[in-house]
Design a protein around this nucleic acid. Sequence first.
DNA 1: TATTGTTATACTCTATAACTATA
DNA 2: TATAGTTATAGAGTATAACAATA
Lengths: 155, 155
Amino acid sequence: MHDPDPFVAKVPGIDYGILDSLLGYAVRRAQIRLYEDFIPSLAPWGITPPRFSAMVIVSRNPGLKLTQLARIMGIARSGSVSLVDAIEALGYIQRLPMPGDRRAFGLALTAKGEADLVAISAAVQAHDARMAQALTPEERTVLRGLLTRLSEAQP
Amino acid sequence: MHDPDPFVAKVPGIDYGILDSLLGYAVRRAQIRLYEDFIPSLAPWGITPPRFSAMVIVSRNPGLKLTQLARIMGIARSGSVSLVDAIEALGYIQRLPMPGDRRAFGLALTAKGEADLVAISAAVQAHDARMAQALTPEERTVLRGLLTRLSEAQP
DNA sequence: TATTGTTATACTCTATAACTATA
DNA sequence: TATAGTTATAGAGTATAACAATA
C-alpha cells in the first residue's frame, strides 16, 4: 500500500474542536498544504524551504557570517553550519575567508548557485502563485500583512 | 555561549529579496514565531503541536483508527504510529480493540488524558491569545479565513 | 487482493553543550 | 572573556518500503 494522499484540511464528519478557533492551527494547516506542493516542485534541485531562504538571503546579502545567517533565519548557530554544509554539497554556496577576522567566513553563492537560483526562484514563484490562486490579489496582500504582524508579535 | 535569542522576523539592514513577496515565506515566519512561544508554554506536559492536534481530534472523535488519524493530520501511517506511541508514553492515549475488525484499534484518550487536556487546552488558548494580541478580533477572523482557503488550495 | 498496524531505515530540521581558534 | 565556527549528541517529525495478521 502507499500512503500520501493529498492533504485534506477539513475532513468531512470530523470535529476539530478548539483547533478551528486557533490562529496557530490555521497557520499549521496552511503550512502543511504549502509544504506538500513545495517539495515536489523543488525536488529537481534538492531544495527545501530553509535552503531556499538561505540561498536568497546570502545572494542578496553576500558576506554574511554563519552566526548572522542563523539569527536572520531564527535557528541555532549549529543549525546554520549543517544548513550551509548541505547547500555547499549541492555546489551552491561557499565560505570565503574574511579579511581581518580569521575566525569568521563570509558566505557567498557560487556562480552555479547564482545561476541555478534564477530557475529555482522561478519554480518557487510558480509554486507560490499556484497556491495563491485560491485568493484574490487584494486578499494575498492582506494575508501577507496580517501574517507579518503576527510574526512580529511580542508576548 | 548560548544561542536562541527571540526570533526577529525582519532584521534591519537585511534584504530579503523575493522572500518578502511570497505567501509561503510569510506563513513560515509566522510559524517560527508561533512555535517559539508554543513549546515553552506546553513544556510542562511534554506537548508539541502535532501531539496537541492529535489529542484534540481523538478526544472529539473517539474510536478513530490510526489510518484515519494519519489522513486527518496529513501524515503517513507510520507517522501516526510513532505519534500515538509518544502520546501513549505520556499516559494520555490508548488503543482499544475494535469489535468486528481484529486488525484495527479504536483510539481514545485515557481519563488522565481527558483531564489534562483541559489544562493543556487552556495553555494553548492562552498562547494563541498572546500571539493574536498583535491583531484586532476582526483581523484574527479574516486571517483564519484566508489561511483556511489557502490550505484548501487546489493546484 | 486489500487493509491495518507495525517495523526498519533514513533524512531533515532543530536544539544544547562543549570544544578550538581566534579576537 | 567573548566570539566564530564546529562537533557531538539527541530528539522530533517526516518519508518509503516491506512485513504479518486479518479482511
